[in-house]
Write a protein that binds this DNA or RNA. Structure first.
Lengths: 333, 333
DNA sequence: CTGAAAGCGCTAACAT
DNA sequence: ATGTTAGCGCTTTCAG
């Protein structure tokens, strides 16, 4: 049914080696032969099979970006950065997402073991050092984005510092009763942001009130969703003494929270986290994370290390930047 | 360096066929042998290579979802639906995105020609009948989501009807001067929605004013972005006689438009398009499209047709549903 | 510049 | 239940 290299070779009156050379941009084919082969290949719609090619050449020209869940705006922007870089090359970008139900380490080992790709970009996949070490032992080219492992290239953002910055903004303006909308307990970034939130308050001589750290009950996307923020804000507002200001672990939750406030006709200063594109238009103050940039840099690094002999490890740490917009307006300087 | 089936077979004192059987869930292996093989495989981190396996077995257990651009909320929700179904099986979902710069037909032919996947889901890839026919000739299992081709399974949404519904809502309430925020000229869905917008007005005996159909200058994502809506709304408001109501071709543009209105302290009724999750919390009235559902159904259909012998074509047409929220409040019934 | 031939690492008959 | 063996469709030396 479908044509193989043999069919093309026969029809073109050349050997399969020549056909192969044509499709591998080898210069060692005469223009005439190349043209003839290409003509026939086009006519019958021939393309070298990926699997046979991968097996024989031990490389695939595909890059796999591994993400935990597709439906997250953060990943989306990172992927965009990655995509931009990859699409300038003749690599193919495939996206693989790890299933939340199954052990992630197991999935990664299976994926890398299959050797689908020449290189892997892990976006927001959070493993501990031991687990990463086990993955690294599979000996594939990889770079981490939004997580760190000492033995490999990574681009990371300091979650604790980000939350500290946001909280500090309120503390410096005299607020002492600040709420936090967090996400699922198992979310590592959310955990670190909570930590930063509490830490800086203590440094300011305050004793943070546990009841001011809340999450909604919507587990979807680890709680990084609109509804969660909505529910959490209602909880906060139902408190005997509601917070004077609120810090969120994501913009998307902040949007839900804003909606809850509106319902109750209350307006409390709030800071989100991520700076997704929308936030500018919502007027949401937020902690900006360099998502696009990390994607771009990560992809570039991976690609480079595939062609050149890898040099030293690249391990970048970013700190989110506070972006002030209207949800923090009207606070006395 | 990396282990092959031969290494495992040798270490386990069995033949390669047995090792292969263990990894292919064949029942024809004794429990003891299986355990021994698995133990050794685990110890050295062996996984059968995807390429060798794909070549030998002529199937890959991967499904590829093809999308035009990752950064679109519409696709995201469709992908979510797809993901949900695939993750219940032992198929792997890979996502491939076609580059905007290169001819899409060419890319699809290359992709399918490589035979990476057992089946393909095309999400919002818009080709004409001839081009689809050419793709179909490659003889791969495929289903279209958000586009139609007579020769294959598809799940489509009627764009014209959707825009008609939204526009009709305003017309029925006596509005005669309605604006539309559209997207890039080359966007097929946007074109159809425009058509519906104009068509129904004529049916109501109106002569639509061309200057009321605008787009911003931001081409990113074919104009389906916040900024585009923002710019477009400013254009509309700068008109000698601004519209009394506005229909958008996406929620994300509507959000930009809302922001522009706010800046000018003006509030015009507006209806978005898509019903992305956010919209509920923004209070945005919109045309709901069954994105998640289409993803789910599409994936299910594809999977089924991979195991069973395909029956007749499944060709579904949906019509978006009008969801009323606060951006259309206060309009006289 | 081109061809012949030896794998790449696995699956799937076919034997046993 | 297990082993033997012939490919799968390519790439890649090695000759010429």
């Amino acid at each position: 049914m479908s044509h193989t290299i043999y069919d093309i070779a026969r029809k073109a009156g050349v050997s399969i080696a020549t056909v192969s050379r044509v499709f591998n941009e080898s210069s060692k084919v005469s223009a005439a032969t190349r043209k003839k082969v290409l003509h026939i290949a086009n006519k019958v719609g021939y393309q070298p099979q990926g699997y046979a090619r991968g097996l024989a050449s031990r490389q695939s020209n595909v890059i796999i970006a591994v993400v935990p869940l597709l439906s997250n705006y953060f990943f989306l922007q990172v992927l965009n950065g990655i995509q931009g870089v990859i699409s300038e090359t003749d690599f193919e970008l495939h996206i693989y997402n790890v299933k939340p139900e199954e052990n992630p380490l197991k999935q990664l080992k299976r994926l890398l073991g299959r050797r689908w790709a020449d290189g892997y970009l892990f976006v927001s996949v959070h493993l501990d050092e031991d687990d990463w070490a086990e993955v690294a032992r599979l000996n594939q080219r990889m770079v981490l984005i939004d997580d760190a492992y000492s033995g490999c290239d990574y681009f990371q953002i300091n979650n604790k510092k980000g939350a500290r910055k946001a909280t500090k903004f309120f503390l410096d303006r005299g607020f002492e009763h600040i709420g936090m909308i967090t996400a699922a307990k198992r979310s590592i970034p959310a955990g670190k942001r909570c930590k930063g939130f509490l830490e800086i308050q203590r440094e300011y001589g305050l004793t943070p009130d546990d009841s001011l750290v809340v999450r909604g009950s919507t587990a979807y996307r680890d709680g990084f969703n609109e509804r969660n923020g909505y529910e959490a804000m209602h909880q906060l507002l139902a408190l005997d003494s509601p917070p004077e200001a609120v810090v969120c672990v994501s913009d998307i939750q902040a949007i839900g929270a804003l909606s809850a406030m509106k319902e109750q006709g209350i307006r409390i200063p709030i800071i989100g986290y991520d700076d997704i594109q929308l936030s500018e238009y919502i007027g949401l103050s937020t902690m900006r994370q360099p998502m696009y940039k990390m994607g771009r840099e990560g992809a570039r690094l991976l690609l480079d290390s595939l062609s050149e002999r890898p040099s030293e490890l690249v391990q970048e740490n970013y700190t989110p930047e506070l972006i002030l917009r209207s949800t923090t307006n009207g606070i006395e300087q």
